[in-house]
Nucleic acid binder design. Structure first.
Lengths: 114, 114
DNA sequence: AGGGAATATTCCTGTAAAGGAATATTCAAA
DNA sequence: TTTGAATATTCCTTTACAGGAATATTCCCT
């Protein structure tokens, strides 16, 4: 059992790596919204909004609550927490003592002798 | 001048949202590596490795240093810092006092009367 | 029961991007 | 200056996916 870093789900990232979905997520940062409201504020047609919301839901980024006719979407915290803890494993990068490229170069030279 | 959240670049996310590139990034977390080493450890053919590395570099996620024949790739910290500060704007989600769905429902009902 | 919101789903089409294979480039060393 | 190692680039093919338009579904209201 070795280096046990937090697992970062790629599908979470691909879900977010689409402009409209990113916008949706940033919209919902300020609170839950209806499909119609989302579509309106983003200048999307309702079907496209629904499709994007489905992708986000399927990836656990959003959750839905039914209110009669409407569906209220809101952010789930779990994927963000996961992303956050994944990011933590990179913090050492900008806390220097990482950039000893020169040492790595020396190692490379040594390997050459084999 | 309004809600000035840190700008999250979508292209950073799409670059990371590809399994091989994600693996490359996680490999480089432990220090800089050569194209050949990366290809070998990931079971990629060299051309594919180079292509993925190019995407990552073009997006500012990696930087290259030439050492004669070889190219040494290492992580850049900036995109991770950006991602981190973008994430911060979501922290309030899992610090509760966010989930007042019921209040939102009441607001919806009121709007119905117009 | 019927009509009209609000939302979801389906089908189609175009396009971006990943992999494979071959080839081009760059460099060191003899 | 040729050879071989390390890397980059090109071309081709296939596939995933986003948008558009139309339609299906679900629900409330009268």
């Amino acid at each position: 059992m070795s280096g046990n870093h937090s697992e970062m789900d790629m599908t979470t990232l691909s879900a977010l790596a689409e402009p409209n979905r990113m916008h949706i997520v940033e919209l919902l940062r300020d609170g839950p919204l209806t499909v119609g409201e989302i579509a309106e504020r983003l200048g999307l047609r309702q079907p496209q909004a629904s499709k994007h919301l489905k992708v986000l839901s399927d990836n656990g980024i959003l959750e839905v609550r039914a209110d009669a006719n409407r569906r209220i979407y809101k952010l789930r915290s779990e994927p963000f927490q996961t992303l956050d803890s994944w990011l933590k494993s990179f913090r050492h990068i900008w806390e220097e003592r990482f950039d000893n490229l020169d040492q790595y170069l020396r190692e490379l030279q040594n390997k050459d002798k084999s």
